[in-house]
Design a protein around this nucleic acid. Structure first.
Length: 882
RNA sequence: GGGCGGGUAGCUCAGUGGGAGAGCAUCGGCCUUACAAGCCGGGGGUCACAGGUUCAAAUCCUGUUCCGCCUACCA
């Protein structure tokens, strides 16, 4: 059925794009540096420019949008700074894959052309993620959109690199780094994923050079023995005394290498003898340094054995392992093989097994930066929510190692360093130097490496606001109010932004960091392409609408707990959206031709006063939740209020007024429900922006967009505690009658005679004044209000507190049924009475518990005693009548 | 190895010191003119286990156990 041109079911499709366009056209997302209002600012975690919206984005951006919309309605000058990230390795991989399909590779097209191709790719696909964020309703100030490879941000990158270099916080050197043989680049420690794997521990004999016998070493990587330059044992180890100065022979190559003593070696592990490969293992590298060992790199950039690998040259590293094991077996040098589980590093981008190897790279010396970043959180200049992440943050920051920032790829910010071919001088500068400052040669060559993508991301909170220039934006919006992100990039990104922000801006980049959970599937599994358990957010948006999806995410965003998302759940909240829609339809149907609201407080019904009080209180509750980023509590409170108070009780009660013969009553009610719907819509707007705008625009007497309407606040309404109490009584009576009706199978169409037995005068008055609600909502034919009567014959009785609701039954009462019903009630009441009385019998309880608690228990006990008395009387009566 | 989180109704989970809750599912009754994507009513829990603190414990402490995640330079 249609009414006011409103369909009975909400259809999100058309509504969403219509209002999003409207918001944009009216510049409602725009931040204003000139504004005098309090500031609220967020920088978006920039998605990969060529990426596509996944569940993580959906959650992350929904929460940010909820905050931004809420703050706008609260009167803040809001900036939600959007943008995208160039995602060096990921994007390069995508474009390379595309090239491969065309039968080419990047080396054929050359660096310059390749970068052009990536830019073209970005032009083609870069809008996709932005449009998807828009579909989600994200109210970013798109006029300020930034990209990490923009000229401005690139300038910030060069500026930072040069300053850090000049301060000695960036250096270049030979170290063991994580090499991905497939991506052909170095990776930071963080970019390596450790995966526990079944592998083997090989026990290999290293014969002594000049005497009988051998040392047995245990290793998981026999192929690296080709690069061994020592065997180490613990100086404390009794088994290996007097080996000082001796050599063992490297198997197969028969090259003498020394036995050295180093307390790093764990005597308990393996044989207590450790082979040392300084060019392929971080620990071996360090031991090599203290013992001044030669570093022999035997694996090349492709993961193949190089010319130093003797007979194995050209073999892939895994192939080489098999071959070398065969050869060791043949030579009788492989003692045994044990199954073993160890954590092996893999590239976080392509999952290829990482090769630790010696290489010359650029590093950031993070120690001094990390120290300040730790201090900032310790001093609560930045607050991490929930706070248990602070411990994780400290743990990592305190054990941080230098950050390898050079990448051997092409897509990214090229490191602003030049090498003089003349004298070998290294020149680090913001602009390309013409000549070498040391030898004046003009034969300079720029560093070919680019910077780690996270290097530019680390500058995001100030580079997007115009740094290194001093801008109004920086002045107004830095530090940002909050960063909303997942814990998976706490180290990658948050920690580094903290370091850079403090170092270059002299203040933390954000006051709060809100860490949200991961979105998983129904079974609690991480969503992944390989598992095939991905729920595509775009599909969800199509099927259920943006508002339903957003509300689901908000209600599931419980601090510190992962989200298990299921379609059922989304469908449930889709129903809620539809409920909102129908409530609005109902209101709009009934206010069509009414005059602007003008009401005396005295004219408000009980239901009016009750719901206004509730709306005021729920708004305050939402305020409190939002301050603490308790999205789930805020959303649940809204859900509960709108559905189970506003719709289930209030609108039903308002029908009495709306359908009244009395025109004044009707008019007042028409005004009140409009006011209330306006409040409900504003309350819900941050969570469900589209449907609320659609309703807002249809409400008479509203102006502009709901986006900029004020969030409901207590001052708008009333706070009437008496109305709450009276409503509880009325609701209790109605529920009582409905309960009896349900259990006694009274057909819904049958109106029943009721006798309501209330003790107090005040209660009596309330029931008397509100009998209309009871008649309508409980389908009562008549209500007789009495004090202290016996249960009438042919009746079923519901007891709550000291109130009895007798429902008179026509025809034959089912005594058995009524007896069982009462019996059940008695058992329940007895249990509660027992509990209370046991407490009251305890002297310690009476003495030590707070008086109000004792009072509550006493009240409860009295209540139960009274209730039981009545129930027992009723039961006796039933038994008598049988 | 270290750390963190979790175990509450059939399922998914709220609830951090005083009456065990929600959504979904389930059962019974309703096409009541806002809504069947709905309305009304009902059933269902030894709050993982064992100790302890307390007048009082799902909640605080200790231990056990199971699950998940993060982290790590024992080859």
């Amino acid at each position: 059925m249609e009414s006011n041109g409103l369909a009975t079911a909400y259809e999100p499709g058309e509504v969403e794009s219509k209002w999003y366009d409207y918001w944009e056209e009216n510049s409602l997302f725009k931040a204003d540096t000139k504004s005098k209002r309090p500031v609220f600012s967020i920088v978006i975690p920039p998605p990969n420019v060529t990426g596509s919206l996944h569940m993580g984005h959906a959650l992350n951006n929904t929460l940010q949008d909820v905050l931004c919309r809420y703050k706008r309605m609260k009167g803040y000058n809001v900036l939600w700074q959007p943008g995208t990230d160039h995602a060096g390795i990921a994007t390069q991989n995508v474009v390379e894959k595309d090239l491969a399909q065309k039968g080419a590779d990047r080396h054929q097209v050359g660096r310059e052309r390749f970068i052009e191709l990536v830019w073209e790719w970005r032009e083609k696909y870069g809008r996709m993620i932005i449009n998807q964020l828009k579909r989600l309703g994200s109210s970013c100030d798109w006029s300020r959109e930034r990209f990490t490879m923009d000229e401005g941000l690139s300038r910030a990158v060069r500026e930072v690199f040069v300053s850090l270099y000049e301060e000695g916080l960036i250096y270049r050197g030979d170290y063991i780094i994580n090499w991905c043989p497939r991506c052909h680049t170095a990776l930071a420690d963080l970019e390596v994923e450790h995966e526990e794997m079944d592998s083997s521990l090989y026990y290999i004999h290293y014969p002594f050079e000049k005497q009988e016998g051998f040392l047995t070493v245990a290793t998981t990587r026999p192929e690296t023995l080709l690069g061994d330059t020592a065997v180490a044992v613990n100086p404390q180890d009794e088994r290996f005394r007097d080996l000082s100065g001796l050599n063992v022979l490297l198997p197969i190559l028969n090259k003498p290498i020394p036995v050295i003593y180093d307390k790093y070696v764990d005597m308990e592990f393996g044989t207590g003898a450790l082979k040392i490969t300084p060019a392929h293992d971080i620990n071996d590298f360090e031991i090599g340094n203290t013992h001044d060992l030669e570093r022999i790199r035997v694996i090349d950039d492709d993961g193949r054995m190089n010319d130093l690998a003797g007979p194995y040259q050209g073999m892939d590293r895994f192939e080489c392992r098999e071959k070398i094991l065969d050869d060791l077996r043949d030579a009788g040098l492989l003692e045994r093989v044990e199954p073993y589980r160890n954590a092996v590093g893999h590239c976080y981008r392509c999952k290829t097994m990482i090769e630790p190897l010696l290489s010359k790279q650029w590093f950031v010396k993070v120690g001094p930066l990390a120290e300040k970043a730790v201090e900032a959180v310790r001093e609560a200049r930045t607050r991490i929510v929930p706070s248990n992440w602070e411990a994780v943050y400290f743990e990592w920051m305190n054990n941080i190692r230098d950050w390898c920032v050079s990448r051997q790829i092409w897509w990214g910010h090229r490191i602003p360093a030049w090498y003089c071919r003349g004298c070998g001088e290294v020149i680090v500068a913001k602009e390309e130097p013409k000549t070498c400052p040391s030898c004046k040669s003009s034969d300079l060559e720029q560093e070919t490496d680019v910077l780690d993508t996270w290097f530019s991301s680390a500058l995001w909170p100030f580079s997007t606001l115009g740094w290194p220039d001093s801008t109004d934006e920086l002045e107004t919006y830095y530090p940002t109010s909050v960063l909303v992100t997942g814990f998976d990039i706490l180290f990658f990104w948050v920690a580094r932004m903290m370091m850079m922000g403090i170092h270059f801006m002299g203040d933390v980049p954000f006051r709060d960091v809100y860490i949200h959970a991961l979105v998983k599937d129904e079974q609690g599994q991480k969503m992944s392409k390989s598992k095939g358990n991905i729920i595509d957010p775009l599909e969800v948006l199509d099927r259920f609408g943006t508002d339903a999806f957003r509300f689901t995410l908000a209600v599931l965003a419980i601090q510190g707990r992962d989200i298990r998302l299921s379609e059922e759940r989304i469908a449930g909240y889709r129903n809620f959206i539809n409920k909102i829609w129908n409530a609005a339809r109902f209101v709009l149907m009934n206010v069509e031709d009414c005059e602007p609201p003008l009401i005396e407080k005295a004219e408000l019904s009980l239901a009016d006063r009750w719901i206004m009080t509730r709306l005021a209180r729920v708004s305050q509750q939402v305020d409190a939740c939002m301050d603490e980023y308790k999205f789930n509590e805020a959303a649940s409170a809204c859900y509960q209020f709108v559905w189970h108070e506003f719709c289930d009780w209030y609108l039903e009660m308002a029908k009495l007024e709306l359908y009244s013969e009395d025109e004044r009553r009707r008019r007042v009610s028409q005004s009140v429900i409009q006011i209330l719907l306006s409040g409900v819509v504003r309350l819900l707007h941050p969570f469900v922006p589209f449907i609320t705008e659609e309703i807002w625009q249809r409400l008479p007497h509203t102006k502009g967009s709901v986006m900029v309407a004020p969030f409901p606040h207590a001052g708008e309404y009333i706070d009437d505690e008496q109305a709450i109490e009276a409503m509880e009584l009325v609701k209790g009576i109605i529920t009582g009658i409905r309960n009896v009706r349900g259990e006694m199978n009274i057909p819904p169409k049958t109106y029943v005679k009721t006798i309501i037995d209330v003790g107090g005068e005040r209660e009596k008055e309330i029931v008397e004044m509100n009998r209309g609600y009871i008649i309508a909502l409980a389908k009562a034919e008549s209500i007789e209000i009495v004090s202290r009567v016996e249960k009438p014959a042919r009746s079923a009785t519901y007891v709550f507190g000291d109130i009895q609701v007798h429902v008179l039954l026509k025809g034959l009462i089912d005594y058995e049924k009524e007896r069982n019903r009462i019996y059940k009630e008695i058992r329940k009441a007895e249990r509660e009475r027992e509990l209370s009385q046991r407490k009251l019998a305890n002297n310690n309880f009476l003495k030590q518990a707070p008086p109000n608690v004792v009072e509550d228990v006493r009240e409860k006990s009295d209540l139960m005693i009274a209730k039981l008395e009545k129930l027992n009387q009723n039961l006796a009566l039933i038994e008598e009548l049988r």
